[in-house]
Design a protein around this nucleic acid. Sequence first.
DNA 1: TCATGTTTCGAATCTTAAGTCGAAAATTAA
DNA 2: TTAATTTTCGACTTAAGATTCGAAACATGA
Lengths: 200, 200
Amino acid sequence: MISDRQTKEREFRKEQIIKAALTVFKNNGIEKATMDEIAKEADFGKATLYYYFSSKEEIFIEILNRGWKMIWESIEPVIHDKDKPKDTFIDALNIIGSLVRNNQSLFEFLFTVPQKMPSSLNEDAHAWKGFQRRMYGVFQGLLEEGMAKKEFPQMRSDILMRAIGGLFHGLFFLGNERKPMSRQTMEEFITTFIGNYGTT
Amino acid sequence: MISDRQTKEREFRKEQIIKAALTVFKNNGIEKATMDEIAKEADFGKATLYYYFSSKEEIFIEILNRGWKMIWESIEPVIHDKDKPKDTFIDALNIIGSLVRNNQSLFEFLFTVPQKMPSSLNEDAHAWKGFQRRMYGVFQGLLEEGMAKKEFPQMRSDILMRAIGGLFHGLFFLGNERKPMSRQTMEEFITTFIGNYGTT
DNA sequence: TCATGTTTCGAATCTTAAGTCGAAAATTAA
DNA sequence: TTAATTTTCGACTTAAGATTCGAAACATGA
């Protein structure tokens, strides 16, 4: 008989483990994010982690799922405005920007770990993949509508997506400096790089 | 007494091993680029690899050193033209673009493996780090001179570097599609993103 | 308070891949 | 032809880190 409180405590402990995993990732990088380290950080025995998660991968997947869910739910409210695709696009980018600013290491995890790990993290079945796909779809859609309205340069939208994705990634995660990029700086870049068309 | 031919054959075999390593990297990704796989691909026994290289890392470092040397030697001839920084900048980018187009997987190795491996690959002492540093220095210098001449938007050059680095990376290495980016497409992007200022 | 279920953990096991060893095969040169 | 040198390699060792085991500690509710 599992009481309500028990369930909540279980959730809480899972939470702690996830936080510990992110801390270890932040301090040591993904390669050195071992179960031993996470256990130490979470102040649990290693075997206890396996009581809550069936594998290390499951911990990582949980992080990805929660993170991408958050991203999706943050942009979802603004993306339906199809009136001015470019403004909507920039709004959404700015929203993600502030999320990143707020928790740089989480997003570094979300955006870099799947690349670095060929494992099953990337399987389509995972929830986070769905959010990611939806997000890319929305952005690409906005790009295409924006192009139709001449608000963006006329290019193959998939390639433009890659370019903007890379640009965003570069701004936030390249270089040694891990200082957050201010909203102002980011806006400056967005308008400089993709803002010189149509409205604005 | 090591004859001249022997020396050459040794070099040749090292070459084969390096090629095999890159092939395995291309097919399996860096995680699965194991000495066993490389040996199989090179058609040598594993122990033989250690006769030619003292460690797996040494193989990787050799790849990085050769690759970055090539990059540097390819752009070096054009970067001294300080007359029109922006044109010079674009020339250099185009040169690197064609190198990448020519050997996508080598460059994927050069540009992604050091990030994925915290190991000693990244130590400043390695030759490739020197080439990389020099290259970044040159690009950033061109950016600064170009800004002074109003050929580029006025921004913090280090951040602009990150943005362009990310953009370039995104164009070539993001997404599933590993088709090479044509020179024309690339030029289109460069002019669209950083080309709308000053001359041109 | 006891029987049952839940949570914890150190120690043991399993797995993968790097690196080593010692002997054999091949090559060279006198 | 043969001794020395160079090259090759399968089998072994090691190391790190994920995962499992089994028993203990703890909590809960009759």
